[in-house]
Design a binder for these strands. Sequence first.
RNA 1: CGGGGCGUGGCGCAGCCCGGUAGCGCACCUGCUUUGGGAGCAGGGGGUCGAAGGUUCAAAUCCUUUCGCCCCGACCA
Length: 492
Amino acid sequence: MAQITKRSEDYSRWYLDVIQAAELAENSPVRGCMVIRPNGYAIWENIQRTLDDKFKELGHVNAYFPLLIPKSFLAKEAEHIEGFAKECAIVTHHRLKQVTKNGKTTVIPDPDSKLEEEYIIRPTSETVIWDMYRKWIQSYRDLPILINQWANVMRWEMRTRMFLRTTEFLWQEGHTAHATAEEGREETLQMLEVYRWFAEDILAMPVITGAKTANERFAGAVETFSIEAMMQDRKALQAGTSHDLGQNFAKAFDVKYQDAEGKVEHVWATSWGMSTRIMGALIMTHSDDDGLVLPPRIARIKAVIVPIWKNDEEMAQVVDAAEKIAAELRPIIGTVHIDKRDNMRPGWKYGEWERKGVPLRMELGPRDLADEKVMLVSRHDRNKQPVGFTDLAAVVPVELERIQQDLYDQALKRRKEATFDIDSWDEFTKLFKGEGGFAHCHWCGDGDCEQTIQGKTKVTIRNIPFDRDETKGECVHCGKPSIGRVLFSQSY
RNA sequence: CGGGGCGUGGCGCAGCCCGGUAGCGCACCUGCUUUGGGAGCAGGGGGUCGAAGGUUCAAAUCCUUUCGCCCCGACCA
């Protein structure tokens, strides 16, 4: 097993090493597209399950729309096309043809199968969905429509990174239609709150909620909101977005409804999404130089029992005891894995489960068996404690909760230590030339000024936090009046 | 797409400059001894060197093209 590069040595390589060591994902033969391996996909399945339950609890239903979108659809919303045109894969033919050249057989697109209207592979599904909504919406009684879709999308980015920016990625995209602007805005904010809850309570990842600036807004949105998390290298990562689309898509796709008074109006829309990118955030938030660290609430395997033995007789006894412990704990905490492999020694197994991020390990050998206890070890802080068999059912869930809370507290502490109020351009450039972090600064509100800052420093406004300091001040860059602080950081 | 680096068994690498038909460590398989923080010994299997084309009696080594990965830049809900 290759060594994991230390974070302090090369953060990017560390990130890739952790993904490899924990067998989460691997590059595929397709440019920018990764294979999500079983260990990684198990995390995604837990993410899906948890979010899906929450969406449904709030009245949403799932549906599925096609992968391919008629090219003309994308042109209907002016800003939307501008935002996505440069990163679309296009389907131009529907058939291959075998050709033999110099004795070698290859396939080419059959010229006779060229499509009249080309399709693009969806970079997001607003357009197909709104084309259908036009047919489904006539009256205020048809509203609201609260649909979510779990899907893959494709964006042909110049530079890809595992999980954070892959050409194809998995996500959920919610698309809702409402009778009023207020209701649309309410839905947008409600879903942002779902993402905040999910990031903080499930992934133990503290986030800052707020509105995006006009420059950073989703193509076609009236307002975009985001949750922003800080990674261990102090860069920001946008972990989820919720968009108030106003009537832009309803107008582009001519979706109208008649209200109770008989008046006809365009409907109001929202869309919101969280993608496999969140897994990159999860990895970078908690993991350490020994590999993956997972919060218990999102880990597939909550605890692993490593039995220790010297001979067949001991093995039988120890494994038997492990089975009983696992059977008792499973109804309480979920999956408990017993590592019965007899071709490796305990020390190797400890290392392997640490790399893979299993939150709790229980060491169980003949000596423990005699004392009726196990050695309970937590992945994130290596805390070791002997626990009596009869206490396990009470202690293990408490320990898992402790881990969950610890990881959140650690992440929050790291963020606080790297967050500053900055009031001068000197300090600003000094911070971002050095260690970086989150900077709450006054900003004049001018998009050109924002872009100048980005051009000079690579620093962008992550969002305008809901709970920002609204005392007046002067723009950190141009000195013009500001009505409050916004969040600046370098980002992924 | 521009600059830099790199593609050799599952992983990490050597060989390439000065062409002669592939080697090391780990992993893997078999056996025995082991098993409380990454076990030891013995035996064994696996690659034609990212791909295509060219030069040559001969190419992992030289030339051309191309694909992919990593870093920086540009770009990027």
